[in-house]
């Protein structure tokens, strides 16, 4: 997988396929990006599990925090890692020890660890790096278009009015733009800088 430019079909398949998401590094502080993403994904019908050893005993939007992936106690489809790039590998190692292992490792915006990605891919998992599932879900469903964001999708179909807890269709026609010279350049520049 080219981790600089994912085809929409790859992201779409992941977001259409997974049902449960464990969010490592989920924060109960309501201005943190992890809180935004957790809340949105829960509203869109995903079974969300907050993982953060610092908050065990508390709830995040009615879901109890667990200390580690091993404490979840049931299979999860995807691990969404809200940690800096330097903290990714131990989480991936822990995820690979789960039985059954998750299907997808997702690293948040700004997070990248090529070695961890390679480990997960070698074990047959799908990997996404440096993306936000809330943004990608909003983009592929075009819900994010409310803010003038380029969803890079088209549809001539009448979509239902979104309501609380509703899953939205992500199966719109994809459009160029995500794979322009510009996004490749940005990805490359960021790598050069680090």
């Amino acid at each position: 997988m080219n981790h600089d430019a994912y085809p929409d079909s790859y992201i779409r398949e992941i977001l259409n396929g997974v049902k449960s998401i464990a969010m490592v590094g989920a924060s109960p502080v309501n201005v943190r990006p992890s809180y935004f993403a957790f809340k949105y994904l829960a509203q869109r019908g995903y079974d969300m599990i907050p993982v953060n050893p610092g908050h065990v005993g508390k709830n995040l939007l009615d879901k109890p925090f667990v200390a580690s992936l091993a404490d979840i106690g049931r299979p999860v489809d995807m691990i969404d890692i809200f940690r800096n790039s330097s903290h990714i590998m131990p989480v991936v190692e822990e995820a690979l020890r789960l039985d059954p292992p998750p299907k997808v490792i997702w690293m948040q915006l700004g997070a990248r660890d090529e070695a961890a990605a390679a480990r997960a891919e070698a074990a047959g998992l799908k990997v996404v790096m440096n993306r936000c599932p809330k943004i990608e879900y909003g983009r592929l469903s075009s819900e994010i278009s409310w803010m003038g964001v380029n969803s890079r999708t088209l549809s001539s179909k009448r979509a239902p009015v979104p309501t609380q807890g509703m899953r939205l269709s992500l199966n719109r026609t994809s459009v160029g733009g995500g794979e322009t010279a510009a996004s490749d350049r940005a990805a490359k520049n960021r790598n050069d800088a680090t």
Binding site: M147, G148, V149, N150, T180, S183
Partner: peptide, 16 residues
């Protein structure tokens, strides 16, 4: 918002 997304798409930007 439709205008914004349209121009963003025509320019190859992420948002407008």
């Amino acid at each position: 918002a439709v205008l914004e997304e349209r121009v963003a798409a025509l320019e190859g930007g992420t948002a407008a």
